[in-house]
Structure formats: structure tokens, C-alpha cells
Amino acid sequence: MSVIYILISLSIVIAVVFFTAFIIAVKNGQFDDSHTPAIRILFDSESKQKQTNKYNKSKNK
């Protein structure tokens, strides 16, 4: 069997993997709200930062 068949099927398999990933993402509602998660991710890091700040302060004392 020629190597071209393997290459083509490989490329299609990879493409299908990305395609399914996209479909699953749509199905799970990833594209329904693009605004809130973008803000939410900032909160988590901020509250953690606060905790570490407090921790550092108490350490310094």
C-alpha cells in the first residue's frame, strides 16, 4: 500500500478529531456566552492573589 493512503487518512483523522472537539464544545454551550467566563477567570486569580498577599504579610510579621 502506498504511503499516500496512510498520510491522507492520518490527516483526515486529525481533522476529524478537531471537528469533533468543535462539535462537543458547541454542544456543551461553550459558544453560548463568551462574555461572562472571560470575566470570571479574572476573579479567581484575584482572590487567590489576595490570599497569598495576606499570607506574605503575616509571614513578614
Binding site: 490527516s11 483526515i12 481533522a15 478537531f18 471537528f19 468543535f22 462539535i23 458547541v26 454542544k27 454551550g29 459558544f31 453560548d32
Partner: peptide, 22 residues
């Protein structure tokens, strides 16, 4: 029920478009 069929269709068309071009 949020209508996501257009997104699916774009996904299908984009996937096929890329591969056919190649």
C-alpha cells in the same frame, strides 16, 4: 432551547472546505 444548528453547520462547512481545498 438555544438554537445552535447554525454553529454546527458552520463547523461542518468549514471542516469540509479546508479538507477539499487541500
Amino acid at each position: 432551547v438555544t438554537d445552535r444548528s447554525l454553529l454546527y453547520k458552520i463547523g461542518v462547512a468549514g471542516f469540509s472546505f479546508g479538507n477539499v481545498m487541500l
